[in-house]
């Protein structure tokens, strides 16, 4: 188990290193000089040079890469070109919107999908299965930002149960903040729940065909007991994979949903920074998101091992 964890950890570090290189390279080849962008096209050459020196843009690329990575490890994400404030502060504020939103949506998605998938699998081929699967088929096809608009139309504009957008902030109390995240979380969660329910169902159906399920039935377990005691844990392996991927999708999907609801999250930060050519912010936010995804994948790998003893023994 220790060796498995160590190996996964090693691959996590390698992935992060390569990802940071790729992001850095993409930003490097981006056309345009941040300094001239910030000062306007009429800026004098010596002012530009001074600013470049201040931003560290005159140093060799590898040095800037190392400085960037080294800084991030100490929580220093650089200084925004646009606002001249530490990027870490800007991110920290926004993270308190995006991360709770993603977790909220993930929780909703799981709470809907697991029972739906288990129900459909246990009713395989019957009316219950067919209707749940039909609903998920439509759920998968719905673009979440469109769904968000419809939710706003119904629950904010017509019914006035929620506000149409904006974020109260956590200072106003957890309840109010959660309420302003509810519609966005539902918009994000439902299409994902549809996917997760389908995966849950097919993973369970695959397990139902396994020989050991027949052994379990031969012991005297009922169909439902066998499914619960022997099926679920074996079906968790593909489901965990999808859960991990969904987290990354929810973080990213949040970027678009934040646009619909005018939420001050990482998504809005990234869009504002792109239009302001504040590339250091873009770079760092992207890296942060990649870091989150890779870390979640690492946790999923650890969860595999917790579920499956064969993995603990191997490699």
């Amino acid at each position: 188990m220790l060796r498995y964890t160590f190996k996964r950890l090693l691959s996590l570090i390698v992935s992060l290193a390569i990802a940071s290189l790729v992001i850095f390279a993409v930003i490097e080849v981006a056309p345009g000089d941040p300094a001239s962008f910030m000062l306007g096209i009429n800026a004098a050459e010596d002012t530009l040079a001074a600013l470049r020196a201040e931003l560290g843009l005159d140093q060799p690329k590898w040095q800037r890469y190392l400085a960037w990575v080294g800084g991030m490890m100490q929580g220093d994400f650089g200084t925004s070109y646009q606002y001249r404030t530490p990027v870490s502060e800007m991110i920290a504020d926004r993270l308190w919107v995006s991360l709770p939103l993603a977790l909220y949506a993930l929780t909703l998605s799981t709470l809907i999908a697991f029972p739906a998938g288990i129900y459909a699998a246990s009713r395989r081929g019957k009316a219950g299965d067919v209707s749940v699967m039909g609903a998920t088929q439509i759920g998968v096809a719905i673009p979440n930002f469109w769904f968000a608009m419809i939710l706003v139309l119904i629950f904010a504009i017509n019914l006035r149960w929620f506000s149409a957008g904006g974020f109260t902030g956590w200072d106003e109390g957890v309840w109010a903040a959660m309420k302003s995240l509810t519609l966005p979380a539902i918009a994000l969660a439902l299409p994902q729940a549809a996917i997760l329910a389908r995966v849950m169902r097919s993973a369970l159906l695959d397990v139902l065909d396994e020989d050991f399920m027949r052994t379990a039935r031969a012991k005297g377990l009922s169909r439902a007991q066998a499914l619960r005691r022997h099926g679920l844990r074996n079906a968790m392996i593909p489901v965990l994979t999808i859960l991990g991927l969904q987290f990354s999708f929810l973080l990213a999907g949040g970027i678009i949903i934040e646009q619909v609801f005018y939420l001050p999250g990482l998504g809005r930060l990234i869009f504002q920074s792109i239009s302001a050519r504040d590339l250091i912010v873009v770079e760092s936010v992207t890296m942060l998101l990649v870091f989150a995804v890779i870390t979640v994948n690492f946790l999923v790998d650890l969860a595999y091992a917790a579920v499956d003893p064969r993995l603990r023994a191997r490699t």
Partner: peptide
């Protein structure tokens, strides 16, 4: 695996935004 580790939409946004 590495490509899968990038949130696809974020990278799509990055690419279209920069280029």
């Amino acid at each position: 695996d590495l490509i899968f580790a990038f949130p696809s939409l974020v990278i799509a946004i990055l690419i279209t935004a920069i280029f």
